[in-house]
Amino acid sequence: MAESKLRTQSMDFAVSIINLVKALKSQKESIISNQIGRSGTSIGANIREAQYAQSKADFISKLQIALKEASETGYWLELLYRTGYLEEAAYKKLDAACSSLRVMLIASLNTAKKNAGSPRP
């Protein structure tokens, strides 16, 4: 069930990021919008890839990439806020969603790493 919640929230977050990118592009901002568009949508893509991982190590690797992308996205969100492209309320909402994804990814990674050492029945 947690994995399904992770997939759902990462998709919802990607939709929010795409809408943010549209708004940024309408303001003629292209440097950060390109970066956050890639990292913010990559989170869910890597979570989806992990679903069909070839091995436990591959699964863990995909989730680690998703976590790195979430961390990068958090950076871009803060930069957009500090440069005035993102209002405080919008920043707090997106940052909370991004932080929630990071927490779920860390929990999933900890579980996967713990279970990676145990043999399958």
Rank of each mutant, 00 (worst) to 15 (best):
A53Q: 00
N115K: 10
S99L: 11
S10I: 03
L79A: 04
L6A: 08
N34R: 11
Y75A: 07
A57I: 05
E88G: 03
N115F: 12
E3C: 09
E49I: 02
G40A: 08
I65N: 00
A57F: 07
T41R: 02
L94T: 04
I36M: 01
N34P: 01
I47T: 07
M1V: 09
E29R: 05
S108N: 08
Q64V: 05
A66C: 00
L63E: 04
L77S: 04
E3L: 15
G84L: 03
K68P: 01
E87V: 11
L109K: 02
K22H: 13
I60M: 01
Y81F: 11
A89Y: 05
I31V: 12
G44I: 04
N115I: 12
I17E: 04
L20D: 10
K114M: 13
E29G: 08
A57S: 06
A53P: 01
K56W: 09
V103Y: 11
R82S: 06
S61Y: 15
E87T: 12
S39D: 12
Y85R: 12
L86K: 07
E88D: 13
K5W: 09
G37F: 06
E72H: 00
R102Q: 09
S55E: 11
S4K: 13
Q27T: 05
I31T: 15
E88A: 10
A2K: 03
F13D: 12
S42D: 10
K62N: 02
S10Y: 00
K93W: 08
S4T: 14
Y85I: 08
S118L: 14
G37S: 04
C98A: 13
A14L: 04
R120Q: 15
K56R: 12
G44C: 03
A70M: 00
T111R: 13
E78R: 13
E69T: 09
K68C: 03
A53T: 02
G37L: 05
K25D: 08
Y75P: 02
S16I: 08
E69R: 09
G84V: 07
K5C: 06
K25Q: 14
R82Q: 14
T73L: 00
K114R: 15
I36K: 00
K28D: 11
E69K: 06
Q9P: 02
K114I: 15
G74A: 02
P121M: 10
A97I: 06
N46D: 10
Y85D: 09
T8D: 10
S55Y: 06
K5N: 09
A70T: 02
E78T: 15
